[in-house]
């Protein structure tokens, strides 16, 4: 028995089964991301003044990735439109660009993650004097990079110092800290631009806490990695589905072009949802 409205639209609703199915799925996705967005906003507004990390994400990279995803949404819809007009060759080209954009987005995001895993905050028992922009300040909290025997390690934490029997390490402090106001931070970054960071020697016995920018660092990074990694998994899932339909699944075009075009539309709807999530995620996490 053939399932009705599998690829032709039901006359009263104008929808075929898969379209109803994907919208129900997307409704559940809205609830998932909506809950996480709400959690982020409540954590952010509930944080004590001056404690919420800001200015630590790379805005140019985030902006570039936003442009990559917008481009991929344009190519996915143009590919579908090409199929509607029976132009399979144009569809293949547009969807190839979509898949490349998805891979590009994930590659850039991995680079961004790697940068965070090697960027540290160290809490010291006694304050030290460092330069923040054009000012010398005494502080017991530093952001920066570790240089240990000429290498820049990743994922170190307080316990790593004892486990690796590290007596001391070199630390290149950033010329700012997120406890500064936006204006002070921007000024400090501007003054320090182009200057090499002076390294200081830190004894492990001086360290109260050491953490890379990983989820355990703070609530901010916990929610940042949760949201962006979940989004990244959606990008990967969407890219795999689009690539399957584009590659091995393309045989269906010869036998049932209507159903094939519907499949492309469904994957395109999911892809648009994933991109729309990023359109909200980018300003909330990177800019505010």
């Amino acid at each position: 028995m053939e399932i009705p409205y599998n690829h032709e639209a039901r006359p009263d609703t104008g929808l075929y089964n898969a379209k109803v199915g994907v919208w129900l799925f997307l409704a559940s996705e809205v609830m998932l991301f909506g809950a996480l967005f709400s959690a982020y906003i409540l954590l952010r507004v509930g944080a004590d003044p001056g404690t919420w990390p800001h200015g630590l994400l790379n805005i140019p990279i985030g902006t570039f990735n936003t442009a990559v995803l917008i481009t991929s949404s344009v190519t996915v819809v143009l590919g579908w439109a090409a199929l509607q007009m029976g132009n399979f060759g144009a569809y293949r080209k547009y969807q190839a660009v979509t898949i490349l954009c998805a891979l590009g987005f994930l590659g850039i995001k991995s680079f961004e993650y790697k940068d965070k895993f090697g960027h540290y905050e160290v809490w010291l028992k006694e304050p030290v004097t460092v330069k923040h922009g054009d000012k010398e300040v005494k502080t017991d909290r530093l952001l920066g990079h570790i240089d240990y025997n000429g290498a820049h390690p990743y994922f170190w934490k307080t316990e790593t110092l004892a486990a690796k029997k590290v007596e001391s390490f070199k630390f290149a402090p950033d010329p700012y800290h997120y406890t500064m106001s936006m204006k002070e931070m921007a000024h400090a970054k501007k003054v320090a631009a182009g200057h090499k960071h002076e390294e200081i020697e830190i004894k492990s016995s001086q360290v109260k806490r050491l953490s890379a920018f990983v989820p355990a660092h703070s609530t901010f990074f916990a929610i940042y990695f949760t949201l962006t990694a979940l989004h990244g998994l959606h990008v990967l899932g969407g890219a795999l589905v689009i690539a399957y339909i584009w590659g091995p699944g393309a045989k269906l075009w010869k036998t049932n072009p209507v159903q094939y075009t519907n499949r492309v539309e469904i994957s395109g709807l999911f892809w648009h949802f994933v991109d729309l999530v990023w359109i909200f995620l980018f300003p909330v996490i990177y800019l505010l």
């Binding site: 921007a186 539309e265 800019l287």
Partner: peptide
């Protein structure tokens, strides 16, 4: 809602983001 309609929603959101980010940067 077809992909066409969803694309229009998406492009509208992207336009708002572009102008919003533009304003944010110019204020900066």
């Amino acid at each position: 809602m077809s992909l066409k309609a969803f694309h229009i929603v998406f492009i509208t959101a992207s336009v708002l983001l572009a102008f919003g980010f533009g304003a944010w940067s110019l204020v900066g």
